[in-house]
Amino acid sequence: AEDTGVRVELAEEDHGRKSTIALRLWVEDPKKLKGKPKDNGAIEFTFDLEKETPEDVAQEMIESGFFHESDMKIIAKSIRDRVALIQWRRERIWPVLQ
């Protein structure tokens, strides 16, 4: 995945059973963002792989004041890349459950 300067990782072990996963997002390289992030924390949130889109979460983070609206695309892309990897792993490791 492209280095967006924003890191997204699983916040809990993924057993492939739940459609909702916990993710943690933090800024590794603020210079890659157009706006200034609110603070230097890791933001933990849940994401429904079946019902939600990375754009939904990115929009809510912006509305909650964590990021400037000009960084919507980079936040959404960072989440999308991680979600794609999680789904790829699920299909590979637990194909029967899919």
């Binding site: 590794e28 390289d29 210079k31 603070d39 230097n40 890791a42 933001i43 933990e44 949130f45 809510e60």
Partner: peptide
């Protein structure tokens, strides 16, 4: 506690915690 919780109007919870130094990229 150093955790901060922000609830968006759509209901999603964001829990903010400090990033360990080891996870931050050195510039």
């Amino acid at each position: 506690s150093s955790l901060t919780q922000v609830v968006h109007s759509a209901g999603r919870r964001f829990i903010v915690s400090p990033v360990p130094e080891s996870r931050l990229r050195e510039s």
